[in-house]
Amino acid sequence: MSVRNPGAGLDLGWISRVQVNQPAVLRRAEQIQTRRTVKKDWQAAWLLRAVTCIDLTTLSGDDTASNVHRLCFKAKRPIREDLLRAMNMHDQGITAGAVCVYPARVRDAVQALKAAGCKIPVASVATGFPAGQTPLKTRLEEVRLAVEDGASELDIVINRTLVLTGQWEALYEEIRQFHEACGEAHMKTILGTGDLGSLTNIYKASLVAMMAGSDFIKTSTGKESVNATFPVALVMVRAIRDFHCKTGIKVGFKPAGGIRSAKEALAWLSLMKEELGADWLKPELFRLGASSLLGDIERQIYHHVTGRYAAYHDLPMA
Rank of each mutant, 00 (worst) to 15 (best):
K246N: 13
R260L: 12
L191C: 08
H313D: 12
E81W: 09
M272C: 10
A112G: 02
G257I: 03
D41W: 10
G307E: 07
A146C: 07
V237G: 06
Q300W: 01
Q31W: 10
D11Q: 00
K273E: 15
Q167L: 05
K204N: 09
G258V: 02
R105F: 11
C118Q: 14
I158Q: 01
N88Q: 10
R17Q: 07
V147P: 00
Q300T: 12
R28F: 05
G183M: 06
Y312M: 13
K114P: 01
I259H: 03
T134P: 05
T221R: 00
D63F: 01
C182A: 15
P283L: 02
G183P: 13
G97M: 04
C100L: 06
A86H: 12
H313I: 07
A75I: 07
A98G: 14
E169Q: 14
K218Y: 09
T64V: 08
A318E: 10
P231E: 12
V25K: 09
A45S: 09
G277V: 07
I175Y: 03
A262V: 01
K273F: 03
A209C: 03
H186S: 11
K273W: 07
N159Q: 15
S214N: 06
L56E: 04
L171P: 00
I240M: 08
Q177M: 15
A228V: 03
A256C: 11
G93N: 12
M317D: 13
Q133T: 14
D314N: 06
S220Y: 01
Q167V: 04
F286G: 09
A123S: 11
E180Q: 15
P316L: 04
W168G: 06
W268P: 13
T127M: 08
Q177P: 08
Q31G: 15
P283E: 06
M210W: 06
L276Q: 02
H304P: 03
G194F: 13
A205H: 01
P6D: 04
V122L: 05
V232H: 09
L207I: 10
M1C: 09
D41Y: 06
E174G: 03
A205M: 04
W280M: 02
L164C: 11
E180C: 09
M317G: 05
